[in-house]
Design a protein around this nucleic acid. Structure first.
Lengths: 183, 183
DNA sequence: CACTTTCCTGACCGATCGGTCAGAGACTGT
DNA sequence: ACAGTCTCTGACCGATCGGTCAGGAAAGTG
């Protein structure tokens, strides 16, 4: 039996609920019941409901920052290919956190605490368009990225099945260089 | 000054709010304030909060059913091309309703009232994959469709700019026939 | 004119929301 | 044995939630 700290368990359960039914759609009571503790215990570990979300988002923000750092000294085409692959892997690894960044964070559009992660998401969007700046390419990138995050949330498919399929659709939709993608 | 019925105004405002911050994230009070009537007025026109959502979704369901009917007697490739184009136009015309179908309805997974529209969405998904049945193609279709709906919600772009871009990304990602798409 | 229907309001209801607080139990170092 | 810290609980708080209800203003209808 693995000993998991209550704090980690809260984050796991809350991330799952937030991603499935939204921030407002999840009550502290819901989380507490699934964790198996009292509502007051949640508020012992976190200063408030919003702080739980913040902790989850900051996990995603760190992962996103690492990804962007690896893209820095590459040329546009290499960075684009790498960004696509790393983005898919990131989303598959942090399914819930990614869903939060793309689904619930935008609802807090005036919250300064989320500026960082949204800025990172914008940079990543630029990377997967190979910094083209073309509005149509940006729209395409956002379509694919939002789509990937959405599909990754529901557990109809597992990661092994999802990864090649998502990589293929992303490359088809986003890479415009003459040579074609391989499966 | 155009006279709009309170009922239509409620649907407009509620659709907007539901799509932006979710069903649970929108209170009847919020809707009433923006409509400019009392909360009780909402409940005079609709039997409950959920009935407002239901009315909005049934609008989408009707539009979706019309789309599917046009696909019936076509061969797979023609139906696929038509489905993609009609889907984009449908989403651009019913932005809020489409967002509801793809974002908030799945949160009510056990609600029989939504079975119809979800079934329609599944059929449409099959159509845009040219009925291939290949899991990878289904994943691709769901990615693109979810992405399109997501991008269409926020009003960063207008329909005129969005339409060609969405059509292009959808065709690139989903059409596998040897001949390529044109812009 | 009286009568009905349509549309809407303000007051109110119980339930649930996020959050506070005093204190209990377990463990640690002295 | 004692004090202190960490983790957690049950009782409780004011605010807000979705929803109900009696009744009023306005507009048709006889």
């Amino acid at each position: 039996m693995v000993r998991v700290s209550t704090r980690d368990e809260i984050l796991r359960v809350a991330g799952d609920q937030f991603a499935r039914v939204g921030f407002k759609g999840t009550s502290l009571q819901d989380i507490a019941v699934e964790v198996g503790c009292s509502k007051a215990a949640l508020l012992y570990h976190f200063a408030g409901k919003e702080q739980i979300l913040l902790a989850l988002v900051s996990t995603a923000e760190t992962a996103l920052a690492d990804l962007l750092a690896d893209l820095d000294d590459r040329d546009d085409e290499t960075a684009q290919a790498l960004a696509i692959e790393r983005f898919v892997d990131l989303v598959l690894h942090y399914r819930r956190e990614a869903a939060l960044v793309y689904e619930v964070v935008p609802q807090f559009h005036s919250e300064p605490a989320f500026y960082g992660v949204l800025q990172h998401a914008d940079k990543l969007c630029a990377a997967v368009t190979a910094r083209s700046g073309d509005p149509a390419e940006i729209i395409a990138a956002q379509t694919v990225m939002h789509g990937i995050v959405n599909v990754a949330i529901d557990d109809k498919w597992d990661a092994a099945e999802l990864r090649p399929a998502l990589l293929r659709v992303a490359r088809r939709a986003l890479i415009t260089t003459p040579h074609h993608d391989k499966d």
